[in-house]
Design a protein around this nucleic acid. Structure first.
Lengths: 260, 260
DNA sequence: CGGATCGTTGATACTTGTCAAAGTACGTGG
DNA sequence: CCACGTACTTTGACAAGTATCAACGATCCG
């Protein structure tokens, strides 16, 4: 990465600008890259946002894709009545803005939950470079496919799991993502409110809070506000799989499952 | 489209093979195309499937994308315990197989609900052609973005709407899709079982059945098994928007809403 | 015609939402 | 540095929504 002068992008926090090369992008996307890309002068700008700032918003004209370089965000859809629905909590390596391609304007918005750094990928430029560097094009398709897979997993989870199981799965998901970024998979901080967790998982904030409290009381996790420590991963993993499946005589509450 | 001899693809119904040109593909994807594509000899094969046949399955190596040319299908995810979760009901113009790109193998399966025709798009070939024909590449990105948007809508719906509203929204969705294909938006046949509707909408088959019956009794639709006629579109559209929003004092049942 | 699948409906229990109240953390301004 | 207001979190009691289980009717297909 290369340092240059200050950026003056609207909304961006005031700071020194960094740039990423094509191999940097591929590494972030966790995709193979060929070294032909390495000695290029084409670079992608980093932009920093403070917690609460918006990266893009609904209706804004689509020009950029973004890759998260550091920090935590939320991807929010806003329905006709102005209600917010959280779609995902993007973090390092995630691709943002894909939903803007189709209608040439974003139909969701992304905001920073923590201070974070995002890499700007001008879509036209990217698409052009893809013709030269096959690996880059593959990285793009791969990343879009991965986002689609995640959405599918989300749909399946919302459709078929109980609130208890969805919260358990959420904790495991975060644990895996943190592990992938080199952080502890056992202990981490939730960077969102109960309301946001509830919205994401399709339940009220009270239910989300209750489930977390219940896991804490059962000794499955140790919870103190936003700080979570996983004490019994296996118990969480068992909760991953359904209640809500039909004709399932092994249906039990978390408590009775532990007692057994 | 061009006729040629018989196909002998495994699983394909025995029939005359048709082929689609690049402009055909773009038209199906509802994307602009330039006429440079028109006089090309590169053609994409049609394959016909009978109701119940599988187009691709979980774990199968990814090679193809598919576009639905005619008929109705279901896209199913299978979880660790062998439970089926319906992700979508693809129909004319929909792109299939995108979830296979990321890991180079499909992680869901697609089966035909009715006899249907699907166009084979070898991914490598497509990706190569994209370098020559910008419009094709844009069509691909656009179609993938559209699928992602649909998933987002689905997540939002599952997270925030009551069973009643989800079923209402499902009927409207089908109506819109049928209209887009030139069929009646008022009267159509559901091509799936109550079980499949329930799986798609995150509820039991009994709840799906009850909601449909209730709309029928209220005169919102006329229901006879799989045949649906929409009698009061406005009532359905009102049901689209939430119950389940928090602190919403206008919360009413379908019945009281009609009475008011 | 008979079996199998699909659809409907009812009774009941459980899960989750709703509403209310109180406690806790956090940031801002005095 | 403390006081205060605001936002966030927890917990309880209750109501509503939905799943579960069961039985029966309808339809389709060989």
């Amino acid at each position: 990465m290369t340092k240059t002068g200050n950026t003056n992008l609207p909304g961006a926090a005031d700071s020194v600008t960094l740039w990423s090369s094509l191999p940097d992008i591929c590494k972030l996307l966790n995709t193979p890259f060929d070294h032909a890309m390495a000695n290029e002068e084409c670079r992608f700008q980093h932009v920093q946002y403070k917690a609460g700032q918006r990266i893009y918003t609904v209706g804004q004209t689509f020009e950029m894709l973004y890759i998260v370089s550091a920090g935590f965000l939320k991807n929010v859809m806003i329905d006709g009545d102005g209600n917010e629905q959280i779609l995902s909590f993007p973090m390092k390596g995630d691709l943002l803005g894909v939903d803007g391609i189709h209608r040439n304007q974003y139909c969701s918005e992304v905001a920073a939950l923590s201070d974070c750094t995002v890499i700007l990928l001008p879509f036209k430029q990217l698409s052009l470079l893809g013709k030269t560097y096959v690996a880059l094009e593959n990285a793009m398709y791969g990343a879009m496919s991965r986002e689609l897979m995640r959405d599918h997993t989300m749909v399946a989870m919302l459709s078929s799991l109980s609130a208890e199981a969805r919260v358990a799965r959420f904790i495991i998901y975060l644990s895996d993502r943190f592990a992938g970024m080199g952080y502890s998979s056992k202990q981490f901080n939730l960077c969102m409110t109960r309301q946001e967790i509830g919205s994401y998982l399709g339940m009220t904030l009270e239910t989300a809070s209750r489930m977390l409290s219940s896991f804490d009381q059962l000794g499955i996790i140790s919870l103190k506000l936003r700080s979570v420590e996983i004490l019994d991963l296996q118990a969480l993993q068992k909760l991953r799989r359904m209640p809500r499946s039909h004709h399932n005589d092994a249906k039990k509450t978390a408590f009775s499952r532990l007692a057994a």
